[in-house]
Nucleic acid binder design. Structure first.
Lengths: 251, 251
DNA sequence: ACAAAAGTGTTGTGAATACACCCATGC
DNA sequence: GCATGGGTGTATTCACAACACTTTTGT
């Protein structure tokens, strides 16, 4: 407690790097999928990992995330929702040295399958379930990051209108419902879902057109509204209250 | 799009440091207060700032936060709630150079007024309102961090039981209610509040004793329960739905 | 007795669920 | 017509805000 004070002069550690990692979600074929790359370099060469890279000199964190997003997916900057998720900095998380990673969460409509990434490694959409099942293991602590991102997006669509960001415009109420069903992994009542969405002012706005499904009555088409928050929220009923340990594990 | 691939070799920037900053909240005299230090060194010498410091070599982020917390408040590790808030990394945010800060949010019961900090600067509890009012300006981007922390804690007590972490055990229902009132800045109905808390299993557990206030009927005493989440949540009714831009500002 | 705070009862309102039912289209 | 999905109506249940009311203390 009476430690020397003069000794504790503010000096950063010798060598350390800051990276961004991306958890990019989309919904394809009714399933939540995440963009994974196959690592082309050591360590973990050949294994699956989240896309990411080092933050450049003078580059803002969000700008680095958006740059990596563009490099990995070829999608322009403005069209995807992007938000900071969490910082990961366990000393041993990367065998190359002390690397602190700021994870970002991105999602958008069913995106074109990405080309081979700029670091010459393949990128693929992988169902999130196959990672959680253990069929696919991720490099570094990326599975933890993925789980945190999943929990975040599951929570976000409860309180905000960002589920609509998963939909290509224009979209139907059923399209939007399938986002919720894929992200939460539970079926929702179509009629009640429709009512909740419609009654939330500014969630979706009708464009006055219709789209015929393969079979059945044509559905009205909508685009995203201006509202950002859902009041009251869309409660995910079927799911049991999970612990949701937001705290960080402290050694 | 057809940018040179070989050029983009992963190399971190030349000089950069990682720090932690702390938003430490408590409730004193019915008001939400934040721990601020008066900076003893340049830049911003003499101005108010959040406590914080550089992450040491081989030190986990959460460990660095807990160390700074202990150094600034003298409070032991286990007794305060601590969670990661957000990472701030705008290139120009610190005039000393590229410093990326991982902000942590901490709160606990009415803590002893801290001694002069280890870097020989005074630390004080300051009402959050006096920062928001503009009476006090903070160094760096610390006002933004404080606002984010405030929004986080306001949201957290809606969905989780962490409001009880603000209370010294044992506590009364009224003690807990005053936390909510101070954090949200709205008065709550004592009877309805009591019912909601009692009906949430595992939020508080009675210890079978009572405590007499200065005047009035004695109140039952409780300690924190095991529940972590509130289902259904405690909705903050009086407050209007605010935009809550969770997105990061991207240049 | 009185003031003050703890705690209980009650009622109207609105939201969530479950499910019956009607509508519009392709075949 | 019939299957299929879009969309509406409605009853039951439940949570909540509002507020009247009772209980238990100190002075």
């Amino acid at each position: 407690m009476a430690m020397s004070k003069a000794v504790r002069r503010r000096r950063p550690p010798a060598s350390l790097a800051v990276a961004v990692d991306l958890v990019i979600f989309t919904v394809r074929n009714g399933r939540l999928q995440v963009l994974l790359i196959e690592r082309g370099n050591l360590p973990y060469r050949g294994e699956a990992a989240l896309p990411g890279g080092f933050v450049r000199d003078g580059e803002a964190l969000g700008a680095a995330a958006r740059r990596e997003l563009r490099e990995e997916t070829g999608v322009g900057g403005g069209s995807l929702h992007l938000e900071q998720l969490h910082a990961y900095g366990e000393p041993g998380r990367d065998p190359r040295g002390r690397i602190i990673s700021i994870a970002y969460l991105a999602f958008g409509p069913d995106l074109p399958v990405p080309q081979a990434g700029t670091d010459a490694s393949a990128a693929h959409w992988i169902p999130v379930s196959s990672v959680l099942d253990g069929q696919i293991t991720l490099a570094f602590d990326h599975e933890e990051i993925l789980r945190d991102g999943l929990e975040r997006v599951r929570s976000q669509i409860e309180h905000t209108t960002i589920a609509a960001a998963f939909c290509k415009e224009p979209f139907t109420i059923a399209d939007l419902r399938q986002i919720y069903e894929a992200v939460w992994g539970v079926p929702l009542d179509p009629s009640n879902f429709r009512r909740k969405v419609m009654k939330t002012e500014g969630f979706v706005v009708p464009i006055g057109e219709r789209r015929s499904p393969d079979i059945g009555r044509p559905a009205a088409l909508f685009r995203r509204g201006l509202a950002k928050t859902l009041t009251p929220p869309l409660t995910r009923l079927g799911s049991i209250a999970q612990p949701l340990a937001d705290d960080e594990k402290l050694t």
